[in-house]
Amino acid sequence: MKVAYWPGCVSRGFTPELHGSVAQVAPLLDIELVELDRACCTGAGVIAEHNQELADALNARTFALAQQVEGADLMMNICSTCQGAQAECQERLDANAEYRSLVNEHLAPEGLSYEAGLTNKNFLWLLVEEIGLEKLTSLVRKPLTNLKVGPFYGCYIVRPTDRLGIDDAHPRDTYLAQVIEALGGTVIEYAGSHKCCGFPIITMNKEVSLKQAGRHLGDAVDANADCLVTPCPLCHLNLDLQQPLAERAAGRDLNMPVLHLPQLVGLALGLSPKDLGMARHVVKPTAVIDWSTSVVAGVGGASGGW
């Protein structure tokens, strides 16, 4: 399938391994990526906090660019925060024709216009709803047998449920668990899976932000997870990049690897940890889990990898 692909900022900035792993995984899943490289940051809710019309216009421009991609089935993003910020703007734009045309006036000089009704799915939703779990399982070359994975969703992709289309027919707040199972892994339930990583307030109240990250990581450790997986690069920043400081805030050792969703999928599809950029993490998954002989050969035995 062909998608208008919105990678977001952080996947091309401080978590380059995310963008890279999507490029590796997409061909294996038969996804053709047409990158929206002319679009700007979604504003992550902060521009909307500053000026709603501005956030809506900037995102309407991205949607309009996506709608111009010929033959694309839908728009795909790889960031929970982008999904949430875009869904918020899209909800307003789709709700009211008068407001939409007011916003479209800002796009007119470029010959762009957003038509209501764009389908914009996070990679996670696309995996379950477009590719399908059965198909995904059939593509697995190295099942994640014995790997205990804790899902970490990120707020923006699970709340508010009505805006994000989460209902009985689309239990999107359970999809990570379903994907982990489809890849052969074991889902670890722990208190923090649907909570906030704390990243949005890291510059305003660092202590509280890191306490949040530390608490969820600690809960995952206590539940015996081998690693966490997240569809959100901003959560990844607080859970992985900031983990040494989160350890300080939580007052305990954590040493919990955090994988990006496409990395976890890539491992099961047979890609190497190195190709998936796992050496770039602050808590190197390779230092904690031995991926060399099978995907999971045991926990804590490896000396640090490559």
Partner: peptide
């Protein structure tokens, strides 16, 4: 120091 800027945008209250 525990005012409007300590909200983490988690949407829990909206839900």
């Amino acid at each position: 120091p525990a005012g409007i800027y300590d909200c983490t945008h988690c949407f829990k209250c909206i839900e």
